[in-house]
Design a protein around this nucleic acid. Structure first.
Lengths: 338, 338
DNA sequence: TAGAGTTACGAAAACGATTTCGTTGCATAT
DNA sequence: ATATGCAACGAAATCGTTTTCGTAACTCTA
């Protein structure tokens, strides 16, 4: 590895001058700068990020915390897209991304915060985690610039998919297609679930439609089996719904299976809607009607806000940014008015 | 941040001794070790990875190169699972993972190798890239420990999904179900495609079945549109196949759509098989018959081999490791013998 | 011509760890 | 009593940068 010293020798100046020249500081003559830069390029010089970080306390590196229950968020349709756009956004601004370890079974592991300090991350992205984990609070309140996705800690930046509006739009779409008997199999309790569920009730109420209790059921996100089970129960009701909402697109397919097994057709006999807008949903017939979350915007916004925080520390309270999704009409909702 | 010095002061010893004590070296008394360790814990000490890396030339950090054409490999069903298990394997051995920048549009970007040097990665994982990119060769031949997935550079470690055997097993399964007229829509040329295609021909030949040229078609991986188009052409042949192989599970759904549009049933009228074993394929009816690649093993093996390379540099030529997949029977292949 | 101001550069400390090479003190062998 | 060996520790250099501060040379003004 060629270092500052090597260039200094080659140019007959001091390492200090080389450093200043390369960083384009003012107290170096233009000629020297030109000389140093050309020699540096010729010798294939690249700074050593560790040495620089040691001195400047800046690593240009962002920690990413992405932990699903069993698996990591990497294989999660929604979050992998968010991470992908976050990565693009960060790279565009010269930041690298490294994962914060999540293997909780390791006996001499570090806490999330310890890991961040150890690596000297300039900031951290927190997504797809159990937000009630004390380690998360520790990290969020540590003073390190942090941004969370789909969960807001008071006084800290967050990027949120607009679930209230998303669910409202989705319900509105279905109601406008003439549906009145609408069931909702919602996900397990969480901030996201709460937003969607209350928005569901609220919107139905705004339309003057009452929701029978037996229309509201629960299934874990991305669980086709339980979604199928709950679908079955809904279909066996004396007055079954004409449309079923699912926790997400993935679990939705569990419902599809049961419906087809019973000899019912989608959407002629029963309508369904998912949530997320995962890629495969657009390539399967019938195309899934769903709320497509704007993952590109979510990830990019998170990157920009986090980096802004890092580069321009302020003292004001952080705001939350809502990212709107859009209803993807698909073909799984029948127009009852037609 | 509490440093070695702080602990040294608190313990009334030199920083050198503290370092040795924490690293469990032999020339420190047991009592001192105990004292230092307890004080370090009490003060919440954690080493500074940059300072350590600067001195030791080891970062315990692995670079990951994951570049799809337009999008990154993050959103790729197969590769995201591989990366996930790689991450687990690396974390278990105390390594972190950071992405090597892939945004080629950035004017003052570094090459992959430069980036690796800049960050001081101990090694790199290369997957899901254009292996003919000169920058990749530069990286592979730089002397940095490197492991590639699904592509073997001569003299370098690689982990390969056993496409030859996978395709053989898949063809055998289909033939054993009585099929003779088997078509194959293969992916665009690559090492992976070549392995599968030649194995397809070879296996068919072993069974004494000749393959008409018009049964062999091409479609990009994960492209439902073109797969649908090619499927249509196959179905319109005078003697259409009884079973169609697709580049992968995802593109397979493009075929499904066309088939259903034409009023044909799967598998009664036409059988189909995919490749990969993506998660959704198991949750959709009819369950997709496919070759399930062992992503867990691929990622884990890659991590272990790479880290072995890093920690035990040798001079011998590297070997390639084949990871076998398994046929997942599913329900999309009709048994013609029944 | 003396003083002030500016420009261009270098010496040296610092970041936080690791490591080499002494040095000291003590026990054991001769 | 002298030599030898070992155990336990510290001083100092080092990794590759950045940054502060000092200084030399030069220009300009009065």
């Amino acid at each position: 590895m060629v270092s500052l010293k090597d260039i200094a020798k080659a140019c007959n100046v001091s390492p200090a001058t080389v450093s200043k020249a390369l960083n384009d500081q003012s107290d170096v003559s233009e000629e020297t700068k030109a000389l140093v830069c050309s020699v540096a390029k010729k010798m294939g010089y690249f700074p050593n990020s560790m040495a620089r970080a040691l001195k400047t306390n800046r690593t240009n590196n962002i920690g990413v915390l992405f932990v699903d229950e069993a698996r990591s968020g990497l294989t999660h349709d929604y979050f992998s897209y968010v991470l992908d756009s976050f990565k693009r956004g960060a790279e565009a601004k010269g930041y690298d991304i490294t994962f914060i370890n999540s293997d909780k079974s390791n006996p001499n592991r570090m806490t999330y915060l310890e890991h961040c300090k150890y690596r000297g991350f300039d900031g951290a992205l927190i997504a797809c985690v159990d937000f009630y984990d004390p380690e998360i609070s520790e990290l969020v309140n540590s003073g390190l610039p942090v941004i969370t996705i789909d969960h807001a800690f008071f006084g800290h930046s967050a990027v949120l998919s607009d679930n209230v509006r998303g669910m409202r739009d989705l319900v509105t779409f279905v109601v406008n297609n003439g549906h009145r008997r609408i069931a909702y199999i919602h996900g397990l309790p969480s901030a996201v679930t709460n937003s969607r569920l209350s928005s569901f009730y609220k919107t139905m109420d705004d339309f003057g439609i009452s929701v029978p209790d037996e229309y509201i059921r629960e299934a874990p996100y991305r669980d086709t089996k339980i979604a199928a089970l709950e679908t079955e129960k809904l279909l066996e009701l004396d007055v079954p719904p004409t449309c079923i909402f699912y926790p997400d697109d993935f679990s939705c397919f569990g419902g599809v299976n049961v419906i087809k097994e019973k000899g019912l057709r989608i959407p002629e006999d029963i309508s369904i809607v998912g949530y997320d807008g995962i890629r495969i949903g657009r390539h399967i017939e019938p195309q899934l009607t769903t709320l497509r979350q704007d993952t590109a915007s979510i990830g990019l916004t998170a990157a920009e806000k986090l980096i802004d925080r890092i580069e321009h520390p302020r003292t004001t309270i952080e705001e939350q940014t809502m990212i709107e999704g859009t209803v993807f009409a698909g073909k799984t909702v029948k127009n009852l008015k037609a």
